[in-house]
Design a binder for these strands. Structure first.
Lengths: 228, 228
DNA sequence: GTCTATAGCTAGATAGAC
DNA sequence: GTCTATCTAGCTATAGAC
């Protein structure tokens, strides 16, 4: 990272990137222009476009960085933690911590959610790779804990989806340190964990099992493949 | 509707609106320009902006129309239907039917989801009115059926949220007549209904009740007020 | 390969004349 | 209420310096 062992180009790219984030954080995504970014990085507008084909692509690059950091953080903090609930807490809260100063422009990530063909659509083909990486983090959190095989497959996706919802809530959350989001996240994770517990209870299983089966069947019919 | 009993301005506005939808449907939202719309409606660009302050505001007007139609349709089809499951089916499927030709540009509705302050953000203050109207439709569907008071309050919001998700899925659904979405919708509504049934079963209630309470408490802590 | 300077296109949005 | 002219900003293109 930082300035060591980098070609001139990589340095310039890094400066543009950092200045862009600085402006996004200070003023917001919409109002920040590529001209502003270039000026702030002391390069020509063309240079900014040389490294980032679009303004959104800077946010995409930012999110790549977020995911690298998240993966690293989770790997670190997860070692030694065995309980499912605790592991899920690490995965979710560390993500929110990484994002904590960037609520101002995080919304740009959701801009093309409703446009299947856009390269930056959250659910689109263009973001397959990032999505898989993100799901993999939740897979890691779930792995090792003793849940059924079906759940081992389904849970990471459900958690990924839930975590997207949490990020959205996070963006809207104006409470100090976004405690409201952290509390909600804990509540949701508690629910997840307790529901999984229910799955195991011999008394309730006959009632819950059909639901589980139904949900899985439904998702498969809806085109969910579990990760292809 | 149509051309009777309208001032000149209202007529122009209607023409611009219809031509815009025509172009959105044919070519999509992004690639359609305000100039295209104005040209197609045989007015100057400025005239289009006189009636619609932004391109997105045309989609917003479209969505207002959708909700009027939806409310009407639901009121009509709901009369005589008493079962909860059946009533929910009416509410959801009629919505999808109204939207069926407009998947190409429906995504524009989700553009500002991540921007709390934008007037067209799905969860923002600027769309409070539309949101309440939409929730009211689900309230109507739930009303009369015998569910607990707490659920009477919570369900419409949950359904509204679920229906948003369904619309998103709908946009991505390339199957003939979007049957996949309709099937998924049925599956989700089945789940909703069966879970509510569970709530009533004396055998399982002791297990389910705490969950219900926990979810309500969680949502209230997260700022959910149930409709203020 | 890295970058500047500059010019130009497109399209959303606005101001002011009529 | 409608039009013409103009502004702004994302983005492209190019020619040339190093």
């Amino acid at each position: 990272m930082s300035t060591a062992n980098k070609s001139a180009g990589e340095k310039t790219k890094a400066v543009i990137f950092e200045k862009a984030l600085e402006l996004f954080r200070m003023r917001g995504f919409e109002v920040t222009t590529m001209r502003d970014i270039a000026r702030s990085a002391k390069v020509a507008t063309g240079a900014a476009y040389y490294y980032f084909p679009s303004k959104e692509s800077i946010v995409a690059a930012y999110y790549d960085q977020v995911q690298r950091r998240h993966a690293e953080k989770v790997r670190l903090e997860l070692s030694g933690k065995a309980g499912l609930r605790e592991r899920l807490g690490v995965a979710v809260h560390s993500k929110l911590e990484i994002l904590k100063d960037d609520r101002m422009f995080l919304g740009a990530l959701f801009r093309y959610t409703g446009d299947p063909d856009h390269p930056l659509s959250v659910f689109g083909k263009g973001t397959d790779a990032q999505r898989s990486q993100s799901v993999a983090i939740f897979q890691e959190a779930v792995a090792g804990t003793n849940v059924s095989e079906e759940l081992q497959e389904l849970l990471p996706w459900a958690l990924w989806l839930a975590h997207l919802g949490m990020i959205l809530f996070f963006i809207y959350d104006e409470t100090e340190g976004q405690q409201r989001t952290h509390k909600l996240a804990d509540g949701i994770l508690d629910l997840f964990t307790q529901l999984i517990e229910l799955t195991r209870s011999a008394l309730v299983r006959p009632f819950v099992q059909p639901f589980q089966r139904k949900i899985l069947g439904m998702l498969r019919e809806a085109g969910w493949t579990g990760g292809t």
